Computed example of a mutant assay.
Amino acid sequence: MLKYIYILLIAPLIFTGCVKSNQPTQVKDNTNLSKIVDSGAKEMLKQPLINSASIAIFYKEKEYIGHYGELEKGKNNKPSNSTIYEIGSLSKVLTGTLVANAVLEEKIDIEDNITKYLDGEYPNLSYSNQPIKVKNLLTHTSRLPNMLPLELNPILDNFLDYDTPLKINEVLKEYNKTKFLNDLHTIKIDAQLGKKYSYSSAGTELTAHILEQIYKTDYENILTNFLSKEIGMTNTKVNLNEEDSKELAVGYHVDNPKATLPMGKLPWGAGGGIKSTIPDMMSFIKYQLKNNMVVEESHKTLYKADSTTEIAYFWRADLADTKLGKYYFHHGGVPRSQCYIFIIPKHNLGAFIITNQSGTQTAKIMATTLDKIFEELLEIKN
């Protein structure tokens, strides 16, 4: 049923305060919903490398949150509503939501040339006198590289190597916004813009810079202010304080039995540095299904990859499934966790799933789990 596509935080592969309360796992009980989600999660945990999972499902005004397994095998430390997760590239759809809001506030136009928001001259950010536009960043059609600094890209080509997370963090340790903007001068656009999808976390980081330019404040302030005021997401942020860090989920890279260090900080974090909790992601799902003006704008088709795949404000949209109808989704991941979000308006259905393991089969396992859950839910006679 579900289209099996996944993209890690930084590479396309085949493949406000701390939360104090430990809320009940079940938010609102519905016998069929809870049984279906629990059954799917238990099957998922039978996979040898999957120690734990957290799932949020919203279906026809009923919601259910489930936490399963152990964050560390043998330690009986089950994840909870207080657990903070790294959501990787799913950060992009949060960034896209901020841009959609800025468009409605008439602070930005997606047809704008991106150099309008850059200090200095960037004649290299064009092709045949065609400039990169904001919408090219939102749809990954800017021809910008996957990552800046460029030295990260060959490291990510060897994602399965045990030392890849350490190498990533070493490169990012001294990397900042100034270096990123300097590196932009070295980029050469190699093809016509807006014609070919080519995944770029660098493009999303640049989007965060543009948001800073129009709002005259730090990206994280823009993010947390909007999420807390408009959606009620009070525990979603880029930077964690000391108390937050105690709740950050431990995680594992491929089949390495040793826990992996948290992901190093990208200059802004918009492309894959946001952390969140399951209750906050449930709030985001419900916000998406309300389809207010910001959501409607963020779901607008900006690029058609083919007859069944569209790109909105960083969202991917699939049109091929007649049963589910048009749905929106995104995968996220870092070297120690992976997640998915699905928004299915036809059925007033949304889901977020995350596990603290990141390997080549992780996304497929999660997609298979959600596929089973969705099929069973749609069979319920309401």
Rank of each mutant, 00 (worst) to 15 (best):
G17W: 15
G17N: 15
V19C: 04
K20V: 02
S21D: 09
S21F: 10
Q23W: 05
Q23I: 02
P24L: 02
P24A: 06
P24G: 01
P24Q: 03
T25L: 15
V27N: 12
V27H: 08
V27E: 05
V27W: 10
K28L: 15
K28W: 12
K28D: 10
K28I: 15
D29Q: 11
D29Y: 11
N30E: 10
N32I: 03
N32P: 13
N32E: 01
N32L: 03
N32M: 03
L33I: 00
L33V: 00
L33T: 00
L33A: 01
S34L: 06
K35H: 04
K35P: 01
K35M: 06
I36A: 00
I36G: 00
I36S: 00
I36C: 00
I36M: 00
V37A: 00
D38Y: 00
D38T: 03
S39W: 02
G40C: 04
G40E: 02
A41P: 01
E43N: 07
E43P: 04
E43R: 06
M44T: 07
M44S: 09
L45W: 02
L45R: 03
L45F: 06
L45K: 05
K46N: 02
K46D: 04
K46T: 05
Q47L: 11
Q47K: 11
Q47I: 08
Q47C: 11
I50D: 14
I50V: 09
I50A: 07
I50E: 12
N51Y: 13
S52R: 08
S52C: 12
A53K: 02
A53I: 13
I55F: 06
I55G: 05
A56T: 09
A56N: 13
I57K: 09
Y59T: 06
Y59G: 01
K60S: 10
K60N: 11
K62Y: 09
E63A: 09
E63Y: 12
I65D: 11
I65N: 15
G66I: 10
G66M: 06
G66K: 11
G66V: 09
H67T: 07
Y68L: 07
G69K: 01
E70K: 08
L71I: 11
L71A: 07
E72W: 13
E72T: 13
K73M: 08
K75D: 07
K75P: 01
N76F: 12
N76R: 12
N76L: 13
N77I: 02
P79F: 05
S80L: 14
S80W: 07
N81E: 05
N81L: 04
T83H: 03
T83S: 04
T83E: 01
T83G: 04
I84Y: 01
Y85S: 12
Y85N: 12
Y85G: 13
E86T: 14
I87G: 04
G88F: 15
G88A: 14
